[in-house]
Design a protein around this nucleic acid. Structure first.
Lengths: 291, 291
DNA sequence: AATCAATTATAAATATTATTGATGGCCGTC
DNA sequence: GACGGCCATCAATAATATTTATAATTGATT
């Protein structure tokens, strides 16, 4: 018997339903059926009496259930014992762009902690490229990035997209509007990060403005979010930022949506495809599951 | 953690030697190394301190060892509980040609029982073709056959070969010789099984005689071994039989080796390639191991 | 030091096993 | 007796494990 089969058996025994057990284990139902079948074949007996309408434990299955649970518990105790002796505990290193770390993560972290309290999380704020580099290095276990990794040992999945919004000084002529259009920004001096620092955002802003016939007029490059906002507040110019930045409310700036189908930037989660740490995959599921 | 990995870990921990542990588990050493590596990666710690000269447990490994053993024991207890409740016990159905069942098996069975006392063995005497058929049917778990199966879900391995010897009435002119040659058998009346009953032996005898320029002179067909021997004893003719038959000593017949490179017949063991019953594979190993 | 024998690690190829998505067919209910 | 839910089966694919051959390392020995 393999540990995996024991877990599958227990799930089915508790749900008395192959489909729900499969869902609980995040696997497809035929895979689960096959494993139960293998287990029964190895034991040389039936564990479940099943029709398409009813699943019930056989007497052998009933005898097996508590023992199988004990085996699982003992296996987990073994893992815990080794970790305790090594003074190790699960540590998940998470990093990525500010949209994710500042905007999304607090909610996700709360959800994850509820299910998995023994795991320590460390969060780093990183740009996409270094985040992917650190993932490959194993300096990071989970990365939130704007660009999907091309390395084939890194897996990734789309998480969310968010619109880009304009930031203006409160005393700007357009500050009272509900929204602004690219055409209205013509000639406005811009305060944005350098291309080398935020290639995706930089390109997205350029493409958007040029696509609407406006030549970007970059007054000032600034890489730090707060520096950009401060500069806008000081009247050096306006900026275009991902929507989450508008969490930072200040009296002296306003955030306005872009009226004419402004651009969006995406966030993807990336991790090492076959990371042996189970918590990595659990965290990924936690992020991807619908709300 | 998988139980397979736990078993591998325990073997290495007890042997403190990857190569010997691999041998004990009947697997290749790199496979074992890889599994230990995976386990360590999943735990996020080293279980063994190892150089090419010395293997020792880390402190984590020491803590892990008794717990891992307990997990394995608990898993086995679970299996036992299910089997006990189902009133099932391992039953190995073994069948095959008489050379194997009468000649080889007694020794093998003794060896197997020593290691695996809880398994009941049932032994059937069958010809090769029905044995293979029953294997496919699951009416049989292990088959000893003269012809290797072609079905690709049946695995097989060579077990032994034995020479064919001549059986003559004690009062035959050649009965005093140390050995007989094909040429001396020219014209002798033969008592042998029909081709349909023992195709391999039949063909081997024909090929041997014709290969030495002797045309077989079949006096009588008889399928049962004892019938053949009795007929030879009664002076109806001579016969050619696999050597093991000479176990049946009688005053009125003599067994003589064939002088001129007489033919041999082989025995192979066959089983279902991926039989889920562990004891099947253990039995096979028991048969194939040297000695 | 340099060599040697023993032993684990690595690599590439292969074999095995698990998983998935699509679908069939059974069972109980309406 | 048709219907809907649900497990089994199938074929294709993906993932994983295993093997053989070989490299690289270690510690003892010359």
């Amino acid at each position: 018997m393999e540990f995996k089969q024991a877990r599958i058996f227990v799930a089915v025994a508790e749900e008395l339903h192959f489909g729900r057990a499969a869902e609980r284990l995040h696997m497809a139902q035929p895979a689960l059926s096959a494993q139960i079948k293998h287990l029964e074949a190895e034991l040389g007996l039936k564990l479940f009496e099943r029709t398409t309408r009813r699943v019930s434990l056989t007497r052998a299955g009933e005898a097996f259930l508590p023992e199988a649970k004990a085996a699982i518990a003992q296996a987990e105790a073994a893992v815990a014992a080794a970790r305790a002796m090594a003074g190790e505990h699960d540590l998940l290193k998470i990093g990525g762009v500010d949209s994710a770390t500042a905007g999304l993560l607090p909610r996700i972290v709360r959800r994850f902690r509820n299910r998995n309290s023994a795991v320590e999380l460390k969060i780093f704020e990183l740009l996409s490229a270094p985040a992917l580099h650190d993932l490959a290095n194993r300096s990071l276990d989970i990365g939130f990035v704007r660009i999907r990794p091309k390395q084939d040992h890194l897996a990734s999945a789309f998480v969310f997209t968010e619109p880009v919004v304009a930031v203006l000084p409160s005393d700007h002529a357009l500050a009272g509007e509900k929204a602004v259009a690219a055409s209205e920004l013509g000639g406005e001096p811009l305060v944005i990060p350098s291309r080398s620092h935020r290639p995706i955002l930089f390109d997205v802003i350029h493409d958007y403005l040029r696509g609407h016939g406006v030549e970007p007029n970059i007054r000032q490059e600034a890489n730090e979010r707060h520096m950009i906002i401060s500069m806008v507040a000081a009247g050096l110019g306006i900026s275009l930022v991902p929507e989450w930045v508008s969490q930072f409310k200040r009296d002296d700036v306003v955030y306005l949506p872009l009226a004419d189908g402004g651009p969006s930037v995406d966030v993807h989660i990336a991790w090492r495809q076959n990371d042996p740490m189970d918590v990595v995959h659990e965290f990924v599921r936690c992020v991807l599951e619908p709300d």
